[in-house]
Design a protein around this nucleic acid. Sequence first.
DNA 1: CTGAAAGCGCTTACAG
DNA 2: CTGAAAGCGCTTACAG
Lengths: 341, 341
Amino acid sequence: MPPARSGPNLSRIATSLGVSVATVSNALSGKGRVSEQLAERIKEHAASLGYVPSQAGRALRTGRSGVLGLVLPDIANPLFPKLAQAIEFAATTAGYGVLIADSRGSVGAQTEAINRLIERGVEGMVIVPRRGTRISAASCPVAVIDTASTPGNTVAADHIQGGRAIADHLAELGHKRILIIGNNPGSNVQNDRAGGIRSGLRAGMSSATLWIERLERDRGDGCPLGLKEKVKEGFTAFAALSDLQALRALTELQRDGIDVPATASVTGFDDLIWSPVVTPALTTVAMDMGTIATIAISSLVRTIQTMGSREGILVTADADRVPMRLIARQSSGPSALADPL
Amino acid sequence: MPPARSGPNLSRIATSLGVSVATVSNALSGKGRVSEQLAERIKEHAASLGYVPSQAGRALRTGRSGVLGLVLPDIANPLFPKLAQAIEFAATTAGYGVLIADSRGSVGAQTEAINRLIERGVEGMVIVPRRGTRISAASCPVAVIDTASTPGNTVAADHIQGGRAIADHLAELGHKRILIIGNNPGSNVQNDRAGGIRSGLRAGMSSATLWIERLERDRGDGCPLGLKEKVKEGFTAFAALSDLQALRALTELQRDGIDVPATASVTGFDDLIWSPVVTPALTTVAMDMGTIATIAISSLVRTIQTMGSREGILVTADADRVPMRLIARQSSGPSALADPL
DNA sequence: CTGAAAGCGCTTACAG
DNA sequence: CTGAAAGCGCTTACAG
């Protein structure tokens, strides 16, 4: 015999009230045609008993688990907390729970993560794919968050426009020689951002690009970026493709006695947690995670409701490029962060 | 009539093979007493059909959802990605999925988050409580990750010992006057860490403490910490209670022309993502998230298996204080972070 | 307005 | 070694 739940169920409520389970179900869901008074009595009784409907029973009956999956290439990446938070909020608002899965390490791990979520019965999932991977068949609707220039994408920040926003900002500050600092030339995001910066340069401006990974391959991990020399060569602006690289640039410049922002400007991307905290505070370009998450989740949910959850299709959104927002900072401010503990 | 799944189920496999569902179930689970050959044939057929067992059916029958909850006070906090990643890994290893819930903003949000997870049918949950809250009744086993000095705690990093490790480190570098830099004097974590530092000072060493929140209340958000003056007063070491504050201190010192580490040392806590990346790299003390997560999850799972999942009890662990680890850095290194996109 | 009944997919105790 | 049957808790189409 299957194990009985320790909590109350519909049947318990029904018998203790002398009505049928159908009536209780209808009363609690508000759907049924149950008299006002009876419904009220049932709701009260259920509440007093601390009744919590069984997801398993409901899911089995309706075929809907009420859960979505979120696959991240590396939860520990500083970019993802904001995304995860936004996704969790959007999903909760839409009445769904979120199961997380980390595809850290390899494409194989990504496939396993996806399969785990399928086995857990998610109705759909949001995937931030590992670089260079294309999500093929997941046997449920999938919303992909990636660069807009990646084929098979549901929604993305407009990294190219974000790059242009940086170029505009630097142009208005009067900079002529820009050093773009990226980590990895194989990254679509970084390439889009770098391309955006270059395309936004105005007459008389020029740029060069420093890829840290290449530099470190030659000179060893953690080597200086040699920015002091770049300043001597005439670069006055250092446009990092992520706040992490911006931080590295800023501290190296300051360590070498270069006054930021008087002598050189440093900008970043992503508005990571530390960008308002450092001295001087970092000008950066932020992805609108709330909008991205809302689009991803609402498109996903709409697809599920239309097509069901067993079709392995890529979800599309009406607007798939979300503009990035320049956050120009001059002085340090407080972190938005309260101490939670 | 309830909606049929589009995918294959046990019954489909059974009829197409001319055996009973019981036999298919037994063969696939490996539990039953099914002949080797038949079991093999069934497994092959199930695989070729792409059979994925229904969690809903299984959960309803066994009373076990196979899902745990994770409640975080603020997913966007830089400390939590590592924790979430470690929890996800430990839970996956134990055969559980992880539903996340953000209790951002208020105690009410925390209660709602817990209730949402209960409604989703989690068998137990890991909670990092909001500061000052005590988790009372959650109607399922709960593992609490908090400071060791908080009552009603399952497992915690030993922040006091971590503070002593910083004091030791600074003592060995020959520092005498230590400025402890915290944000919020109401934080248990920060107080434990500060207390640990103070208790680890040796003869001839002394400390003062700067609480940023108090300073900003007087002088405005984002005001300078005035560390240059502190250097003049004779402080040579700045021991921040988090890497975020350490970063603020480091950049302010550098901006003001103070050579770190030649003139002043800066240390932090938590080994956040940027600590190896800044120049000079940050010495810090790290929580052992892997161990903490493993203890939390294994204690939780053990409790669930022993007591079931409908008792609202606080899980206890054998070892509840996990030592922190000093990471002494002298020069910058690469971030452990690969570009995922 | 209310109830009896079917059935979602699974596992397990029991019978053969 | 294999199968028939019960039942986990729910929702819904149908009957009254």
